[in-house]
């Protein structure tokens, strides 16, 4: 379905508008998507969202949204669940925080340096999981995550373990609004990069490998290269976002790297729709708001929001495996009256 979208175009002379459309398509920008972004950008000035505690939710939601984008890049394409995802987030976060604490390196630089160990570990995990298929690759990456979590917990001299590591924040200000724009920018960079890659021939190769690795190999796609590349990139972005986490919340504990955090990202990403890249990000905002709302109003029922995660994940998996992205597709096709055969990825 999506595969053909970039192939269809021939490079004959086109109107400037057409050219812009083509470019937008390449990066996965649609009118609806653009509109959503604009709304998102002015949201912090619209009551009630201009209150600090709601802004905090917005930042949290955007952070989760960015993570689901990176998560889906692997799950939705090469069909391997990186079950240790949260650990890579932690690696980036801890690196950046430690650089800031011990060497006084600015968080603005630190978050980029934090990408390096995450990417390297992602690269190694990619190699480690290479020979394992599907679910066993997921297990292996889970073990990697558990090992990294265990290390973080135990290397108390470095990380202070469960006591938590204080990290300097990006800004002096107590306002959440600037942070919101930082994380939305980071989210957009993640989205545009990964969409650009998946819309190019890489996307095709990823999907081919995800569907049937042997068939992909037979048709000349090198699974080693694509799988390792995919893993590395995903973990690099995870590390980068982890850096934001560190310098926004100002404190890091090993809990960030726990399996439950991966499950959270996974649930939203699946509810959003596998292989859409944008579905999870789109879903993250209402989802996180709903959950934060529940969490702050039903304090006597801790964990209710997590039950919701689980329930939604199960219901979506059984009854509507396409998730929110498919709902969007269906509605759009209804409106534009296109036949189902022509439907392409939702955000095109």
């Amino acid at each position: 379905m999506t595969q053909n979208s970039s192939v269809k175009y021939t490079y004959e002379e086109q109107e400037p508008i057409e050219r812009i459309k083509r470019l937008a398509k390449k990066f996965g920008i649609s009118p609806v998507g653009l509109l959503s972004l604009v709304i998102l950008l002015i949201l912090p000035f619209i009551p009630p969202f201009n209150q600090e505690h709601l802004l905090r939710w917005l930042v949290g939601a955007a952070l989760i949204a960015a993570q689901t984008i990176a998560f889906d890049f692997t799950t939705g394409y090469i069909n391997v669940v990186n079950f240790g995802f949260a650990a890579f987030l932690g690696v980036g976060g801890y690196t950046s925080a430690l650089l800031a604490v011990n060497f006084g390196i600015s968080p603005w630089i630190g978050i980029f340096l934090g990408v390096i160990p995450s990417a390297v570990l992602g690269f190694l995990t990619g190699i480690l999981t290479l020979r394992l298929r599907g679910i066993f690759a997921a297990l292996m990456s889970w073990f990697v995550g558990l090992a990294l979590l265990g290390l973080t917990r135990n290397l108390t001299e470095l990380t202070r373990g469960p006591l938590g590591l204080n990290a300097p924040t990006f800004l002096e200000t107590a306002s959440n609004r600037p942070y919101f724009y930082i994380i939305v920018a980071m989210m957009m960079v993640t989205y545009l990069t990964l969409r650009w890659i998946t819309n190019a021939h890489y996307g095709l190769a990823f999907r081919a490998i995800g569907q049937n690795i042997d068939a992909a190999r037979a048709s000349g796609i090198n699974p080693t290269y694509y799988r390792v590349f995919n893993f590395t990139l995903q973990c690099a972005f995870a590390g980068w976002l982890g850096g934001f986490y560190a310098h926004y919340y100002g404190i890091l504990t090993p809990a960030l790297m726990a399996t439950s955090h991966t499950v959270e990202v996974l649930a939203i990403s699946y509810v959003g729709g596998r292989g859409s890249i944008w579905g999870g990000a789109f879903t993250a905002f209402p989802f996180v708001f709903l959950i934060e709302f529940l969490r702050s109003n039903l304090t006597e029922l801790p964990g209710l929001h997590l039950i919701l995660y689980g329930l939604l994940l199960i219901l979506v998996m059984i009854f509507y495996p396409g998730g929110v992205a498919q709902v969007y597709d269906t509605i759009r096709d209804r409106i534009t009256n296109r036949s189902p055969q022509n439907q392409s990825a939702a955000a095109d």
Partner: peptide
């Protein structure tokens, strides 16, 4: 009953959901 496609991965995710529900249900 509905689909056997990608059963291994999909059923695994169901168990993830079940795990979360049981843990938090027991907690509540």
């Amino acid at each position: 009953k509905r689909t056997k496609e990608q059963w291994v991965m999909n059923s695994f995710l169901l168990t993830v959901g079940i795990s979360v529900i049981i843990i938090n249900g027991v907690q509540i």
